[in-house]
Measured scan of single mutants.
Amino acid sequence: TEYKLVVVGAGGVGKSALTIQLIQNHFVDEYDPTIEDSYRKQVVIDGETCLLDILDTAGQEEYSAMRDQYMRTGEGFLCVFAINNTKSFEDIHQYREQIKRVKDSDDVPMVLVGNKCDLAARTVESRQAQDLARSYGIPYIETSAKTRQGVEDAFYTLVREIRQH
């Protein structure tokens, strides 16, 4: 089974770092803004072998026109913010609204991801993020692309959301 996953969120929150940590098991430290990259990885989730087709997208506003296209083809979405960047957390709402509009559905598989949880300088409390996820009816997972904490959990949870859909 193949799953088309799309990673969305503001610029600099760590979308590529999360994806590369999942696929290649290493942490990319330097920031190089993405336009669009796709990665494929075969994994076993709950005993089922599946192929993850992951689209890593641009957070930069100037590429926002490309969003409709990949939102149409994606089956599930990782909505990523950084726990030390309140603005990126506030941006999640717009991504969710755009996904709902493009998919013409209120019920699209999504996982809210709070990345950079290895950093002490948190400005978005776990509780705020949990409340937001609960209001959307989606899971919330904290990750660190640096330490790998929660990385597999985030992507695998999204696959489970798609399966249950």
Results as ranks from 00 to 15, higher is better:
Ile35Met: 04
Gly114Asp: 02
Leu51Tyr: 06
Ala129Met: 00
Tyr70Ser: 02
Asp104Glu: 05
Leu78Met: 10
Thr49Ser: 07
Ala154Pro: 13
Asp107Pro: 05
Ala120Glu: 11
Leu52Phe: 13
Asn115Gln: 13
Arg101Val: 01
Cys50Glu: 06
Leu132Cys: 11
Asp53Gln: 03
Asp118Leu: 09
Val6Pro: 06
Lys41Ile: 05
Arg127Gln: 06
Val6Trp: 10
Asp53Leu: 06
Ser88Asp: 07
Gly74Lys: 03
Lys146His: 15
Lys116Tyr: 15
Asp68Met: 01
Gln60Ser: 15
Val151Asn: 13
Glu61Ile: 14
Asn25Gln: 08
Glu62Pro: 04
Lys100Val: 06
Thr123Phe: 05
Val13Met: 13
Asn25Phe: 08
Asp37Ser: 01
Lys146Arg: 11
Phe27Pro: 03
Glu48Asn: 04
Asn84Ser: 06
Ser105Ile: 08
Thr86Pro: 08
Glu36His: 04
Arg122Ser: 13
Arg67Phe: 14
Met110Asn: 01
Pro109Asn: 04
Thr147Ala: 10
Ile162Ala: 06
Ala58Pro: 13
Tyr39Ile: 00
Tyr95Glu: 07
Phe89Thr: 02
Ile83Ser: 09
Thr19Lys: 03
Leu158Arg: 03
Glu90Thr: 04
Ser135Ile: 13
Asp153Leu: 10
Gln149Gly: 13
Thr19Asp: 03
Ile162Ser: 12
Lys4Ala: 09
Asp46Phe: 09
Ile141Arg: 11
Gly74Ser: 03
Lys103Pro: 03
Glu125Asn: 09
Asp68Glu: 07
Gln164Asp: 06
Asp32Ala: 12
Asn115Glu: 06
Thr86Tyr: 04
Thr19Asn: 13
Asp153Val: 11
Ser88Ile: 02
Leu132Trp: 13
Tyr3Gln: 08
Ala17Ser: 00
Leu55Glu: 15
Ser126Ala: 12
Val43Gln: 02
Met71Glu: 12
Glu97Met: 05
Arg122Leu: 11
Tyr95Thr: 09
Val44Tyr: 03
Ile45Ala: 08
Leu119Ser: 15
Val111Lys: 04
Asp68Tyr: 05
Gly9Glu: 13
Asn84Glu: 14
Lys146Asp: 15
Gln21Thr: 13
Thr147Arg: 10
Tyr31Leu: 14
Tyr63Val: 14
Ala154Met: 15
Tyr95Phe: 05
Ala154Leu: 15
Glu62Asp: 12
Arg101Pro: 03
Asp37Leu: 00
Val159Gly: 10
Cys50Pro: 10
Gln21Met: 09
Gly14Arg: 00
Phe81His: 02
Gly150Asn: 11
Gly59Leu: 08
Lys103His: 08
Met110His: 00
Asp131Phe: 00
Tyr140Glu: 01
Leu112Lys: 12
Ser105Asp: 10
Ile83Met: 06
Thr57Trp: 10
Val44Pro: 06
Asp68Pro: 03
Thr1Gln: 05
Phe81Met: 09
Arg67Leu: 11
Gln128Ile: 13
Ile54Val: 06
Pro33Cys: 07
Thr147Gly: 14
Glu125Pro: 10
Ala10Asp: 03
Asp91Glu: 04
Ser105Trp: 08
Lys41Trp: 05
Cys79Ser: 01
Gly9Arg: 01
Asn84Val: 06
Gly14Asp: 05
Ser38Leu: 11
Glu161Thr: 09
Leu158His: 12
Pro109Phe: 05
Glu152Trp: 13
Val102Thr: 00
Val111Thr: 11
Lys87Gly: 02
Asp106Pro: 07
Asp32Leu: 11
Gly11Ile: 15
Phe77Arg: 01
Phe81Cys: 00
Asp91Cys: 11
His26Ala: 01
Ser105Gln: 00
Thr123Met: 08
Asn115Thr: 14
Arg127Glu: 12
Glu90Ala: 08
Thr123Lys: 06
Phe81Val: 06
Ser105Pro: 03
Gly9Phe: 01
Gly9Gln: 03
Cys79Val: 08
Ala65Gly: 09
Cys50Met: 04
Gln149Asp: 10
Lys87Glu: 00
Lys41Phe: 08
Val108Arg: 04
Met110Gln: 01
Thr19Leu: 07
Ala133Val: 08
Leu52Trp: 05
Leu112Ala: 07
Gln21Cys: 11
Asp107Gly: 03
Asp153Ser: 09
Glu90Val: 07
Pro33Val: 06
Gln98Phe: 13
Glu30Gln: 00
Leu51Ser: 05
Val28His: 03
Leu22His: 14
Ile162Gln: 06
Ala133Cys: 10
Gly150His: 07
Pro33Trp: 09
Gln130Val: 11
Val111Phe: 00
Arg127Gly: 08
Phe89Ser: 05
His93Ile: 00
Val113Gly: 07
Thr73Gln: 08
Val102Tyr: 08
Ala145Gly: 15
Glu75Ser: 04
Ile92Ala: 10
Leu18Phe: 14
Ala17Arg: 04
Arg148Lys: 10
Cys50Leu: 04
Thr57Pro: 04
Leu158Tyr: 04
Gly114Glu: 07
Arg101Glu: 04
Gly47Tyr: 01
Thr143Arg: 07
Ser38Ile: 02
Ser88Trp: 06
Ile141Tyr: 12
Ser16Asn: 12
Ser144Gln: 15
Ala65His: 08
Asp68Phe: 03
Leu22Gln: 14
Ser135Arg: 12
Phe89Gly: 03
Ile83Arg: 07
Ser135Gly: 10
Pro109Gly: 02
Lys41Thr: 12
Val28Ile: 12
Tyr70Arg: 05
Ser88Leu: 04
Cys117Pro: 08
Leu112Pro: 06
Ala154Thr: 12
Gln128Lys: 08
Asp53Ile: 09
Arg127Met: 14
Phe155His: 08
Leu158Trp: 13
Ala120Tyr: 10
Ala58Gln: 14
Phe27Val: 08
Gly114Tyr: 09
Gln149His: 10
Gly76Lys: 03
Thr147Trp: 14
Thr34Asp: 07
Tyr95Trp: 05
Ile45Cys: 08
Asp46Trp: 06
Leu22Met: 02
Asn85Met: 08
Ile141Glu: 04
Glu142Ala: 09
Leu5Gly: 00
Phe155Arg: 06
Glu36Lys: 02
Ile20Trp: 06
Ala82Arg: 03
Gln149Ile: 06
Asp106Thr: 03
Gly137Ser: 14
Phe155Glu: 00
Gln128Asn: 12
Arg163Ser: 08
Ile45Gln: 01
Val151Cys: 10
Ile92Asp: 00
Gln164Ala: 12
Phe89Ala: 07
Ile92Tyr: 11
Asp118Trp: 09
Lys15Phe: 00
Val102Asp: 03
Thr86Trp: 04
Asp106Phe: 06
Tyr156Asp: 13
Thr34Phe: 00
Tyr70Phe: 13
Leu158Gln: 01
Ser105Tyr: 05
Gly76Phe: 15
Ile35Gly: 01
Val159Pro: 06
Ala82Pro: 03
Arg40Val: 03
Ala133Phe: 13
Lys146Ala: 14
Gln130Pro: 09
Val80Met: 09
Leu55Trp: 13
Phe89Lys: 01
Ala154Tyr: 04
Glu161Met: 14
Glu61Phe: 15
His26Thr: 00
Leu112Ser: 07
Asp106Ala: 01
Asp104Pro: 05
Ser16Ile: 00
Arg40Met: 01
Ser64Val: 07
Arg122Ile: 08
Gly114His: 09
Thr143Ile: 15
Val151Leu: 15
Gly150Leu: 13
Met66Asp: 15
Asp29Lys: 02
Arg101Gln: 07
Tyr140Leu: 12
Thr157Met: 13
Tyr63His: 14
Phe155Ile: 15
Phe89Asp: 09
Cys50Gln: 07
Ser105Leu: 06
His93Gln: 12
Val124Met: 07
Ala121His: 14
Gly76Val: 14
Arg160Asp: 12
Leu55Pro: 01
Asp32Met: 08
Arg40Gly: 04
Gly12Gln: 14
Ala121Gly: 14
Cys50Ala: 03
Met110Thr: 02
Gln130Phe: 11
Ser126Thr: 11
Ile138Glu: 05
Thr143Pro: 13
Gln98Val: 08
Leu55Ile: 11
Glu161Ser: 11
Thr73Arg: 06
Thr73Pro: 11
Thr143Asn: 14
Arg134Leu: 10
Asp29Arg: 09
Val80Ala: 05
Gly76Arg: 07
Leu78Ser: 04
Leu51Ala: 01
Leu119Met: 13
Asp29Tyr: 03
Tyr156Gly: 10
Leu18Ser: 05
Thr57Val: 11
Leu18Gly: 03
Gly76Met: 11
